[in-house]
């Protein structure tokens, strides 16, 4: 009896062991190793040299880093705002189940299944300053040309545009299904309560789908920090570092300049930022979300 109860005590640990092992090998160990690396100078080949906080000091003293950081945050804010607002509008429009709406829904979802490489290449052509379609269309109205990917002021926004184009359909799809799950009788009760369209939208619709919006916004924030392919293919962080973000910079520093310790320190900073934003986001908004 005694040995049996002992093995019963072990059973839960046994059951979670595989998951814990996978998490440890693929998540926890790399994170810790990354933090460890950030205290060293290393070029991937030679010996590792302990550097203390030098990588971090260099990071915050360097002029580039602040620019990179602000690019990253600016990209995040623009991307998340545009995606959510447009997806919301599209979802509201798609609520009516007509042929046109189903067609548009399919159409708007399609970019989501195309690989980012192809997307980047196509948009690179569209946005080409001299031969791109956009500038050609603008020229018809006597406007432009715009240096979509070559103008410092515009390039980051152009990348946001690609990201928005790719993810609006997916976000709209999720919001549409959330909208569809709002019981019709709530709208009827609101109609009898003499509620204006605005009030219905803000007091009922928006609040009923708040868990979905909360989730989507968080996913989009995290996703926007990870933007890489479009930058790598379309701008390489340029012009003049205007589209250089943390992730791209980390990649460059470690795999092109072999400054592994410096890149690792940057990764630690990125992790801290994402973590802080997530914690803040949960603290600030979670209590305002209505969970059924």
């Amino acid at each position: 009896m005694k040995s049996r109860s002992k093995s019963m005590k072990l059973l839960p640990y046994l059951l979670v062991a595989p998951a814990v092992m996978i998490l440890t090998i693929f998540y926890i160990y790399p994170i810790l190793y990354n933090v460890y690396l950030s205290f060293f100078t290393w070029n991937m080949r030679g010996p590792m040299k302990f550097a203390g906080l030098n990588n971090y000091i260099e990071l915050f003293k360097g002029r580039d880093f602040l620019g990179i950081l602000s690019n990253t945050l600016l990209y995040m804010v623009m991307d998340v705002t545009l995606v959510m607002v447009l997806a919301m509008l599209l979802a509201l429009f798609l609520q009516k189940n007509t042929f046109i709406n189903r067609f548009i829904q399919t159409l708007s979802f399609t970019p989501n299944i195309i690989s980012l490489i192809s997307v980047s290449l196509i948009w690179m052509w569209l946005m080409n300053t001299d031969t791109g379609l956009f500038n050609y269309l603008l020229s018809l109205f006597g406007a432009g040309p715009v240096g979509w990917l070559t103008d410092k002021q515009v390039a980051l926004f152009s990348l946001v545009l690609v990201s928005v184009w790719k993810s609006v359909g997916f976000n709209a799809l999720i919001i549409t299904s959330a909208l569809g799950s709002i019981p019709a009788h709530l709208y009827e009760a609101a109609a009898l309560d003499n509620a204006s369209k605005q009030s219905v939208f803000f007091q009922i619709t928006l609040r009923m789908i708040s868990p979905t919006l909360f989730f989507l916004i968080l996913m989009n924030i995290i996703g926007s920090f990870q933007v890489f392919e479009t930058i790598n293919i379309m701008t390489q962080g340029g012009p003049a570092n205007a589209t250089n973000t943390l992730i791209f910079s980390i990649y460059k520093q470690s795999f092109e300049y072999y400054r592994v310790g410096y890149a690792a320190a940057m990764a630690v900073v990125l992790m801290a930022i994402v973590g802080l934003i997530t914690i803040f986001y949960f603290k600030a908004l979670n209590r305002r979300v209505h969970y059924r």
Binding site: H185, A190, L192, Q203
Partner: peptide, 20 residues
């Protein structure tokens, strides 16, 4: 419009606003 008819309705499933 329903809201301007000077009437109130009690629904079968009450239709209370769950977020409020």
């Amino acid at each position: 419009e329903p809201g301007k008819r000077n009437l109130a309705m009690v629904f079968q499933n009450y239709a209370l606003y769950p977020t409020m």
